[in-house]
């Protein structure tokens, strides 16, 4: 949990409702501790940009949560050989997020 010195939960922010949460579950914490998984961060802007790219290039509207994964893939892919295969888990559909994305980009819908 993100906490202050009294154990009070600290306020957090993410454009993605599913990531707007102050804690990490025990399974992810364990995977990080044993070095099995590595965790990275993506800004709201990078996620929205990936949301648009994915819709434009693939015809798939990703959920904002999954757009974070796509944003990191866009950053990471040029660093490795073209022969390598990358699997991205696109965990949900972004129809639910279209209003949030429009707001972020300054459109009224």
């Amino acid at each position: 949990m993100l906490q202050d010195e009294d154990g009070q939960t600290l306020p957090v922010h993410s454009i993605s409702a599913g990531l707007d949460y102050p804690g990490v579950g025990p399974e992810h914490s364990y995977l990080k501790d044993i070095g099995r998984a590595e965790y990275v961060s993506i800004t709201d802007e990078e996620a929205v940009s990936a949301f648009q790219e994915c819709a434009r290039l693939e015809g798939i509207i990703p959920a904002l949560e999954a757009a974070h994964a796509i944003a990191y893939t866009i950053k990471f892919a040029p660093k490795i050989s073209k022969e390598k295969i990358i699997v991205v888990c696109l965990s949900g559909s972004g129809d639910k997020d279209s209003f949030e994305v429009a707001k972020k980009l300054g459109y009224k819908i």
Binding site: M1, Q3, D6, G7, Q8, T9
Partner: peptide, 9 residues
């Protein structure tokens, strides 16, 4: 008091 506050200290 909440447990979180006791546990933290």
């Amino acid at each position: 008091v909440s447990y979180s506050t006791v546990f933290k200290k």
